[in-house]
Each structure stands twice: as structure tokens, then as C-alpha cells.
């Protein structure tokens, strides 16, 4: 083969690869400018994605067009997109969202948090009704540890004479409900071990291995029940009440809002736990879990 033909082949092959690659960027780039479709987002958290999928299927069943933009990282990544109107509907949690917009909030109880959240919501965005279901941070210990020291509330930790190490995401170390909060609200001092899985399996394993004695885990996490862990009560209100609450843009009309309100009304605490459990234990995709649940509450 002559060099010129070889060179030609290199060029052709490269061009072909480039074309391939540029086609590839197409299906990946979802800017959500999909006409009148309602853009629904979700956190990069399996439980949140199931709820978003439920919203999507309920709206589709009612004849709306829906554009799914799921698994968008953390709050800092997606909240700007909600505020700018690029995302129309997003399942959120009242307490953490309020803290995101208003870090110094004093509100702790369910209704106070919801009222403060309505206040704090920026222009062009609103929160719909909140659900009974909660998914909030809680201090968790093993059953064995709870029985050994007779613990039911966080305050009881004062009786523990062993060293206590708290395992949680890094941000807990500087947040008011982390070690500082334990010290100031309950007078309990703990060491801190960062584990970056948001109270996931690694945190649970560390608890069971005894590497940590105390962890922050979501109340709706099935691993609490599965691993026989105990959530300690929080009489001083370190953690804000955190109910499931849809955040909506102006693009959500009354008709669509009514559909979501119906879903919210059916979303009990037990429902959310069950949805999470099916995801973790039966290893089902969000689509299936959402469809089954909507059928079970006659909203399909």
C-alpha cells in the first residue's frame, strides 16, 4: 500500500470516529427544552428517583408530557436549575431544603418548617403540599449498644462512659447538628470519623464492626430495620422535620399540581419505607416500583 492511501485511511477513520462521537453527544445533552413537556428532576439518590418516577407516571397517566432528568447529583448542582426554571418539578425534603435556602433557620417542627420553607422559596418557585412521609437524618446506634446503655433519646448518651465516635459525611462535622450540636444541645462530646456514603452500607458496616458507635442515617432507610438499628429520639430538635415535598416551577399548572397533590396525599411514611425496601431487597428498577405503587393506591 502506498503511504498516501494509508494516510487517507487514517483521515477517514478519524473522521468516522469524530462523526460517531458527535452523534453521541446528542442523546446525552438533555437541556430540557422539550417544548411544553414538564421537566422532572431527581437527586442522585435511589429513593428520590423512585418518587420522581412516581410523579412522572402519574402525570403521564393524566395526559401530560414529561421529560425525565433524573439523578442530578446533589442539591448544589440542581437547585440553581430549579431556580432558573430549567426544571419544573423536583421531589425534595422540607428540612434540608429550608436549610439550604436559610442556613440559620430556627424552625424545627413539621408545620414551622413548612411555613418557613414557603417563606424562603425564591420567586418563580413554589412548594406543593408536603407528604406525611418523612426521610430525615437521625442518630442511630446498634440494638446491642442501645440495650447495654439503656438508650432511647440522644440525651441518654450522656450515661455512656465509653468513648463515642460518630461516623457521617464530612459536612456533618461543621453543621449545627453534628458533633457541635451534640455538645451544645446535649452536652455530649464525640469523636468524628468521616464516611462519605451518606449513612449507606459502609456506615452500617462501621457501626456493626464497632469502628463507630453512632451514625447519622435517614429514617426511611430500610437498613435500619434490616440491621436491627435503633434511631434515637431527638427531644432538643437537632434535626429539622423533613417531609417529602414537591418543588414546582410556574410551568406546573393547577391541573398538574392537583395530580401531584393526590400522589402526596397517598404517600404515607410506611409507603416510602416500602418503596425503598423494594429497591434494596428486590433490586427492582424505579419504573417498576413506581408503577406497582401507583396501581396499589389506584392512581394509575
Amino acid at each position: 500500500m502506498t503511504p498516501s492511501r494509508t494516510a487517507l485511511r487514517v483521515v477517514v477513520a478519524t473522521a468516522a470516529a469524530l462523526v460517531l462521537a458527535s452523534c453521541g453527544s446528542d442523546p446525552l445533552s438533555g437541556d430540557g427544552d422539550d417544548g411544553d413537556a414538564i421537566v422532572i428532576g431527581s437527586q442522585d439518590y435511589y429513593s428520590n428517583e423512585i418518587v420522581a418516577e412516581i410523579y412522572a407516571q402519574a402525570l403521564e397517566a393524566d395526559g401530560h408530557e414529561v421529560d425525565r432528568q433524573f439523578r442530578i447529583g446533589q442539591r448544589e448542582a440542581y437547585v440553581p436549575e430549579i431556580e432558573s426554571g430549567d426544571i419544573d418539578l423536583f421531589p425534595e425534603y422540607s428540612g434540608p431544603l429550608l436549610q439550604f435556602w436559610e442556613p440559620d433557620t430556627e424552625a424545627r417542627l413539621t408545620d414551622d418548617v413548612y411555613a418557613a420553607l414557603e417563606e424562603a422559596t425564591p420567586e418563580g418557585v413554589r412548594v406543593l403540599d408536603q407528604a406525611e412521609a418523612t426521610d430525615q437524618d437521625s442518630y442511630v446506634v446498634t440494638r446491642e449498644f442501645a440495650e447495654k446503655w439503656d438508650l432511647t433519646t440522644i440525651a441518654d448518651l450522656a450515661e455512656v462512659t465509653d468513648d463515642l465516635t460518630l461516623g457521617a459525611n464530612s459536612e456533618a462535622e461543621s453543621r449545627p447538628n453534628g458533633p457541635q450540636g451534640l455538645e451544645s444541645a446535649y452536652g455530649i462530646s464525640v469523636d468524628f470519623a468521616p464516611i462519605e456514603d451518606g449513612g449507606g452500607p459502609l456506615t452500617v458496616k462501621a457501626l456493626k464492626d464497632g469502628d463507630i458507635q453512632l451514625a447519622i442515617i435517614y429514617t426511611a432507610d430500610p437498613s435500619i430495620r434490616k440491621n436491627d438499628l435503633v434511631s434515637l429520639e431527638d427531644p432538643e430538635g437537632l434535626f429539622l422535620a423533613s417531609h417529602l415535598v414537591p418543588v414546582a416551577s410556574e410551568n406546573i399548572d393547577d391541573d398538574a399540581a392537583a395530580v401531584i397533590d393526590e400522589v402526596t396525599a397517598a404517600m404515607t411514611a410506611e409507603s416510602l419505607l416500602e418503596l425503598n425496601q423494594r429497591s434494596v431487597d428486590e433490586e427492582l428498577p424505579a419504573k417498576t416500583i413506581a408503577a406497582d405503587w401507583l396501581a396499589s393506591v389506584d392512581l394509575d
Binding site: Q74, N169, S170, E171, E173, S174, F192, A193, P194, I195, E196, L202
Partner: peptide, 18 residues
């Protein structure tokens, strides 16, 4: 730093989360 309190990665994770 993902699973332990070690190294310069701590600054990345703390910075990212906070």
C-alpha cells in the same frame, strides 16, 4: 478520604459537600 480521615482528599470532600 472517601472511607477514612486521611490525606489531602479530605479538603476535596469537605469543600465539595460544604
Amino acid at each position: 478520604a472517601y472511607t477514612s480521615d486521611t490525606g489531602l482528599g479530605r479538603y476535596l470532600f469537605i469543600g465539595l459537600k460544604a
